[in-house]
Structures are given as C-alpha cells and as structure tokens.
C-alpha cells in the first residue's frame, strides 16, 4: 500500500519531528518510555505524511501517549479509543490511525470496542500495553493479572482468571496479531513497521513493565541469563524452536491437537510444525496464543497476518457504488421521494 511522502519532495523527517513539547510524565523506569522512543524512531521511516498520522487513546498510563507524539492526537475516555478511532478512520480513510491502550482500558472497560474493531477489520493499528495492573489508579488487579494476585482491592488474592489476550484477538477475527516486549527494542521496531504496512486491524500486545506497582512481572522474559529458555521468537516458515542452545522445540501432538514442549531431535511421535502466519485457518495461531507460562514459552512475533478487505474501505466503496449506480441525487429528488400531491 502506497502511503508515501518519501520521494514526493516532502521533507525528510527525523525522530525529533515526532517529539512533542510536552514533558513526559511517566514514572522513572516505566516501560512506556522505550515504546514511545521506538514509535518516534520508526514513524519518520514509514513514509506517511506527518499530518496524516493520528494517535488515539483512552484512559490510563499508556493513554497519555498521544500527548508526547507530535502528531494529531486525541486522549479520549476510558475504553472508547477503538470506537472513536473507527469513526475517524471510516470518515477519513487516508489517515494512519493508531490506538494506544492498556490491559484495563482495552480489555476491561473497553473490551467490547476492541473486539468489534478487530472483528470488522477496521484499518487501525492497536498497541495494547500489558503490565497486568491498573497503574493510574495505583495498583488494582487487571483482567490480565494471574489468579491469586494480591493488590489493594484483592488483599486475599484474586479469584478471577486472566484473559488470554492474543486468543481473544484471534477469536475476534483479527487479521494481524502479534506480541513483543518493551525491552526488545529491535523486535518492537520491526513489528511497528509491519503493522503500518498491514491493511486492516493490526493488534500488538506489548509486555510492559510497571516498575512502581507491578515490577518484574515479565522478568523471566527479560533477564538475559534465562530469557532464551522462556521466549519463543516466531519466524515465518520456521519450526517452533527456542532455548539458549536452540535445543528446545514445540511440536504437535496430533492425537490431542496441542503443542508439547520437548527437545529437538527426539523421536516420540510428535509432529514438527513450521510457523505459518498467513495460514487462512487460525488454528495454529490460537494454539500459540493460548500457551501459558511457565509450562510453555511465551511466543513473541507475528502469530497471524492475513489479508482481508478493510471495514473502512468496504464502507466507503459501497457509498461510491451507490452514487455511481443511482446517480448523485439532488435535494429535490430527495424531498419528493414517495407519494406526493399538489395543491394549487
């Protein structure tokens, strides 16, 4: 999809052009800083005219994001960013619309809007920062907190079961589903580029650390001594290999239709599968999405990327077709439709 100003004589932009004049107010050490920096870095490379980029957010720590991007931005109300962004995108299909949300904003109060935006395949780029806690309201449990989490609002431990975020996105029919970690800078950058290129809803879950209220929740995926044993970096067409020595693998138990961890080269009747992100059937993606730590590694990368027509383009094409087939219509024609009579 061509979006570009690059090569059109437009000025070459840099990271600086995407930094707003507002002081960033996240806590020191917040994972959001790294995510902000990567977006500011990648945006100039996308070839999208700066004035056509819009960041929309709801409420929460992550939702402060638009204030720090020197693009058009709208910090809206709790949970509603995907709905507001849908109205904007359908009205102005030429815009590149990014939604920034969190596990509370996007999955709890705004869960309905998120699944419907994904279901419709609205051309929105949705970044969901998952830190398993409510930051702005100071540490209550979220819909992704693991069962038993003790917080101010759950001193005895939660009895809620957490969402499998990516399963939810896939279940809603998302056409692009990926995951990364705030500290995996190169990986994050690559995914931002891919999202920008993907026509349709692109959903990225970012494991993000809240150093104040839920520090270290992703530690096993970040600690350089152990993370290789817990992270499965998905590569299209490649077997599901992980581990420090690349000696571990997930293979398919075809009798029970599930992925099973094991050692590479073992002969035990399990079937080696190659990752296929563009498979029309989301079965493998769903299996990967539902893998829960610590029994399984956490997959990062693109679980699913398929092409489907977008809601916004289909909607506007209908209108254009109607105009073509029935004519543009005049006000007189509009008013006089149906049975009329004349009094003279």
């Amino acid at each position: 999809m061509s979006r570009g100003a690059v090569g059109n004589g437009a000025p070459v932009l840099t990271k600086k052009d995407f930094e707003s004049d507002q002081a960033v107010r996240w806590c020191p050490g917040c994972g959001d800083y790294a995510i902000l920096a990567q977006l500011q870095k990648v945006m100039p490379e996308l070839g999208i005219p700066k004035q056509n980029i819009v960041f929309i957010s709801g409420i929460g720590c992550s939702s402060r994001f638009p204030y720090y991007m020197d693009t058009f931005g709208f910090h809206t109300i709790h949970g509603r960013a995907p709905a507001l962004a849908t109205g904007l995108k359908v009205s102005r299909p030429e815009l590149s619309v990014w939604v920034v949300t969190g596990d509370g904003d996007g999955l709890s109060i705004g869960g309905n809007h998120l699944i419907h935006a994904l279901r419709r395949n609205v051309d929105l780029k949705i970044l969901l920062f998952n830190n398993q806690t409510y930051g702005l309201t100071k540490g209550q449990f979220s819909p992704t907190s693991t069962t038993g989490t003790r917080t101010k609002s759950s001193p005895l431990g939660t009895v809620d079961r957490p969402f499998s975020v990516l399963s939810l996105a896939l279940g809603a029919g998302a056409t692009f589903v990926a995951r990364t970690i705030d500290t995996e800078i190169q990986h994050l950058q690559g995914l931002i580029r891919e999202m920008a290129e993907h026509p349709g809803s692109a959903f990225l879950e970012i494991y993000q650390n809240c150093p104040v209220l839920n520090d270290g929740v992703w530690e096993s995926l970040k600690d350089r001594h152990v993370k290789a044993d817990h992270l499965l970096t998905l590569e299209d067409g490649q077997p599901l290999v992980y581990g420090k020595e690349s000696d571990r693998i997930l293979r398919l138990d075809t009798k029970r239709m599930r992925l099973v961890p094991g050692r590479r080269g073992e002969q035990d009747g399990l079937v080696e599968v190659a990752h296929d992100r563009s498979a029309p059937d989301p079965a493998l993606a769903l299996m990967l999405a539902s893998l829960a730590m610590p029994e399984f590694p956490a997959p990062i990368g693109v679980l699913r990327a398929v092409r489907e027509p977008t809601f916004d383009s289909l909607t506007r094409a209908q209108e254009a077709r109607d105009r073509e087939e029935s004519g543009p219509g005049s006000l007189r024609e509009l008013l006089e439709a149906g049975s009329t009579w004349t009094v003279s």
Binding site: I77, L84, G87, V90, S91, R316, P328
Partner: peptide, 25 residues
C-alpha cells in the same frame, strides 16, 4: 449516495464516540 456514512455500532457508547471521532476528522 448523498455522501453520508451510516454505522450500526456495537453499542450506544461506540455510537457516540465514533461520531465524535468522525467530527474530529
């Protein structure tokens, strides 16, 4: 064909916020 989009939203809140998004645009 008169240049308008109708959107049957997922709920009342999405209906009002998507209209605000359209106005923002």
């Amino acid at each position: 064909r008169y240049g308008l989009t109708t959107f049957q939203a997922e709920d009342e809140i999405a209906a009002v916020t998507s209209a605000i998004g359209a106005s923002f645009g």
